[in-house]
């Protein structure tokens, strides 16, 4: 019994100190991002990598999510004879919730895991030590630009996801199920307000931060061996998913 308690206590302490370290890591990265010289070239490079890597999966998943929403929305709305509201239902669902969350999942799987693996490999092959030895702060050089790039790229990808999704729902609703095209868009126009777009934007922004932060942290501190890198990659994806969902709940509840 006592040993169980010690176990729980030790586990909690370890988790707490890990959380503290993660938080300090983020603070350092943000602080260093504002210290000149700014790494504009690197930031653009990482925006390009995140964008190019994730664009195809975001397009594909956005399109299919939209089409599914077309079917599901039509099915639910028809029970109330409200098929003409399909456009607004799809747009609200995508803009407020599914767009930010699903595209964040896609980016985590596609780019976040690669980030963790890359930094983990750099740790294992002493490249991070080499940066230190050249008097270059690896957090400023490796982490800060990735976090800023995540903050910029994530809302853009989410916007693409939203647009493609709305178009997918339109194809199904209007093309297949016979909702009128005019009511699809006019319903959307009359019910979507600025706050819907804004809350989706804030979500995607914070998800961009969560993904790059968690994945960089896990990669940066990976144990220096092959299994360490693979473990860091897995952990970074799982932790990102969990944090995205928890933070999503929190934001939804405050911004409703």
């Amino acid at each position: 019994m006592l040993s169980l308690l010690t176990h729980i206590g030790r586990f909690t302490l370890r988790q707490l100190s890990e959380m503290g370290r993660m938080f300090l890591f983020l603070l350092a990265a943000i602080f260093l991002a504002f210290r000149p010289p700014a790494k504009i070239g690197l930031i653009i490079h990482h925006i390009k990598t995140i964008g190019v890597d994730s664009l195809s999966v975001v397009l594909l998943s956005g399109f299919f999510t939209g089409m599914v929403m077309g079917f599901q929305g039509y099915y639910s709305l028809r029970k109330f004879n409200a098929e003409s509201w399909l456009g607004s239902a799809a747009a609200l669902g995508l803009l407020r919730e599914l767009g930010p969350v699903l595209s964040a999942f896609m980016v985590t799987g596609r780019t976040g895991s690669a980030m963790a693996a890359e930094l983990g490999t750099m740790r294992a092959t002493e490249q991070i030590d080499a940066l230190y030895s050249m008097a270059i702060n690896p957090i400023k050089y490796l982490v800060s630009p990735r976090i800023i790039a995540g903050l910029i790229a994530m809302p853009l990808l989410t916007a693409i996801f939203d647009v493609v999704g709305i178009y997918g729902a339109y194809l199904v609703g209007v093309g297949l199920l016979g909702v009128s095209s005019g009511s699809y868009f006019s319903g959307m126009e009359s019910s979507v307000v600025f706050n819907d777009v804004y809350s989706g934007f804030m979500k995607s922004l914070s998800f961009g931060l969560i993904i790059t932060w968690v994945c960089c942290y896990k990669g940066f501190h990976a144990p220096p061996m092959a299994t360490g890198v693979s473990q860091a990659t897995t952990e970074s994806v799982v932790l990102s998913f969990v944090l995205i969902l928890v933070w999503d709940y929190f934001l939804t509840s405050v911004m409703l």
């Binding site: 750099m122 092959t125 002493e126 490249q127 030590d129 080499a130 940066l131 230190y132 030895s133 050249m134 008097a135 702060n137």
Partner: peptide, 19 residues
């Protein structure tokens, strides 16, 4: 510390080139 490290050049055992 960073200023101090700037005085050193290091060849790592595994070269540690940025790949």
């Amino acid at each position: 510390l960073y200023a101090m490290r700037g005085r050193f050049g290091v060849l790592f055992q595994g070269a540690a080139l940025l790949d």
